[in-house]
C-alpha cells in the first residue's frame, strides 16, 4: 500500500499545483481544496505500516495497531483547512462582486502598485 499511497499523494499535489496556477477563480479554489487534502493524506500515510506494533496498554491483546498520532494531527488540520477554505471562498466572492471578473490574470493585469493612496 505504501507505494500506491505515495503515488496518489504525488498525483494530488500535481493536480493541485496545476489548478492553482490557472486563471479561473473556481479552479484556484479547487486547487487549494485538493492541496489541503493532499497534505492531509501525506500526514495520514505517516502512520506507517501497523504490522508488529501494539497499543501500549497493560493486559490488552497484542493486535496490530496503527499509530494514532498522525490522525489526531489531521483532525486539527482538517478543521483549520475548512475554516481557511471558507474564508477563501468569501474573499474570492467579494473580489468577484467588486471587480466583476473571475479571471485572476485580468484582475492584476493593469495595476500600478508603485503609487497607492
Amino acid at each position: 500500500m505504501q507505494i500506491e499511497t505515495a503515488l496518489l499523494i504525488g498525483a494530488l499535489f500535481g493536480c493541485a499545483t496545476y489548478l492553482i496556477l490557472q486563471n479561473s477563480f473556481v479552479r484556484i479554489l479547487f486547487g487549494f481544496v485538493v492541496l489541503t487534502n493532499a497534505a492531509n493524506l501525506l500526514v495520514l500515510s505517516m502512520s506507517g505500516n501497523p504490522a508488529g506494533r501494539h497499543a501500549p496498554i497493560v493486559g490488552s491483546v497484542a493486535r496490530p495497531l496503527v499509530d494514532p498520532l498522525p490522525q489526531a494531527l489531521i483532525l486539527t488540520a482538517i478543521v483549520i483547512g475548512f475554516g481557511v477554505t471558507a474564508y477563501l471562498v468569501l474573499l474570492l466572492y467579494r473580489i468577484f462582486l467588486d471587480q466583476r471578473t473571475t479571471n485572476a490574470a485580468e484582475l492584476y493585469e493593469d495595476q500600478d502598485t508603485s503609487e497607492h493612496t
Binding site: 492541496l35 497534505a39 481557511v84 474564508y87 477563501l88 474573499l91
Partner: peptide, 21 residues
C-alpha cells in the same frame, strides 16, 4: 497574501508529518 500563506501552511503541515516519521 492569502494564497501564498495557504501554500506555506500546507507545506508546514507536510513538514510536521515528515518530521514525525
Amino acid at each position: 497574501y492569502l494564497a501564498v500563506n495557504l501554500v506555506g501552511s500546507t507545506l508546514f503541515l507536510c513538514a510536521a508529518g515528515l518530521a514525525y516519521t
